[in-house]
């Protein structure tokens, strides 16, 4: 009697375990399934539209064929400027957090604030840049778009720089100090060098992040149907063009949107995989 009761209890526990583990297998398949599904659909819709004219012609007026040249150029220009603005600030701030202010109050406040900025809604960043740049200047511009993207770059770079500098063993720092090297030299010549791969990874991840950002560009850089590298004027970008074209009723535009979506996704995923291998090798 007691024996059979023990057996049913054991069977119930085993059953519960089987159910839970099967659910875990299912959940993983579910998660991976979405990745396959999204990438598959993207290839299916985007690959057909991929041709040379995508890279040589500008965005077309409604109802005719064209390419994405001006949008790609605008995206590259704004991304480069954003990285040029954001990276030095990010690296320097990360350096302070890791090297000078490990335990001081300022550093712990900034660390917290940086984490908030890291996950702050990007549309709010767009509103912020609109208020401080677009409204005073009186017009949308590529500069405003680039600065909005830089605001997204900074927290990413701060975070990775700090984390990577902290991985540098303190014995290296002490060795440098013992031969009388000033602290700044120790940081630039030794700590940066030891953490270089990690810091570069951070910058690459930041680029990956901003090359797909749409929300902060909507009302800073706006859009431009024509070829323009004038940063003081509205500037097209790949994500904003995708947004506009995908929601349009024209078939040519929708097809270009899919092609652009494929381009962005491939770029972003390649960047983030490359960034990962960079640190994985260390």
């Amino acid at each position: 009697m007691a024996d059979s009761r023990r057996n049913t209890l054991y069977a119930a526990r085993r059953l519960r375990n089987t159910v839970a583990t099967s659910l875990a297998y299912g959940a993983t398949a579910f998660g991976l399934g979405w990745l396959v599904l999204i990438l598959g659909v993207l290839l299916l819709h985007g690959f057909g539209g991929l041709s040379l004219s995508v890279f040589t012609e500008n965005t077309p007026p409604p109802g005719s064929a064209g390419g994405l040249l001006n949008a790609i150029a605008g995206s590259i220009v704004m991304t480069v400027l954003a990285v040029v603005i954001g990276t030095p600030i990010g690296i320097l701030a990360g350096t302070y957090l890791a090297e000078y202010g490990r335990h001081d109050k300022l550093a712990s406040i900034v660390r917290f604030i940086n984490d908030i900025l890291l996950s702050a809604p990007s549309i709010v960043i767009g509103l912020f840049i609109y208020e401080v740049m677009v409204a005073p200047m009186g017009h949308f511009s590529g500069y405003a778009g680039a600065v909005a993207l830089a605001v997204i770059v900074i927290p990413v770079v701060v975070r990775t720089t700090e984390d990577m500098l902290r991985l540098v063993p303190d014995t290296l720092r002490e060795a440098a100090a013992s031969i009388g090297l000033p602290r700044s030299h120790m940081i630039v010549r030794i700590a940066y060098r030891a953490a270089r791969a990690g810091i570069v990874t951070g910058i690459l991840l930041a680029i990956a992040r901003i090359s797909g950002e749409t929300a902060p560009l909507l009302f800073t850089a706006l859009n431009n149907q024509f070829w323009s590298l004038n940063m003081n004027a509205p500037m097209p970008s790949l994500p904003v063009v995708i947004f506009q074209f995908a929601l349009s009723p024209y078939e040519e535009w929708q097809s270009l949107a899919w092609t652009g979506a494929l381009l962005i996704t491939v770029t972003v995923l390649a960047l983030s995989i490359f960034a990962r291998t960079l640190t994985a090798r260390k």
Binding site: I91, L92, Y96, L106, I113, N114, V124, R183, S184, V188
Partner: peptide
């Protein structure tokens, strides 16, 4: 050495200013 330290400190204040700027502008 001092210049570099102050530079990093300014960058940290820039991050602070960013968040306060966002809040203020909104």
């Amino acid at each position: 050495d001092i210049a570099f330290r102050e530079l990093t400190r300014i960058a940290v204040y820039a991050v602070l200013a960013l968040l306060s700027g966002v809040i203020l502008a909104l």
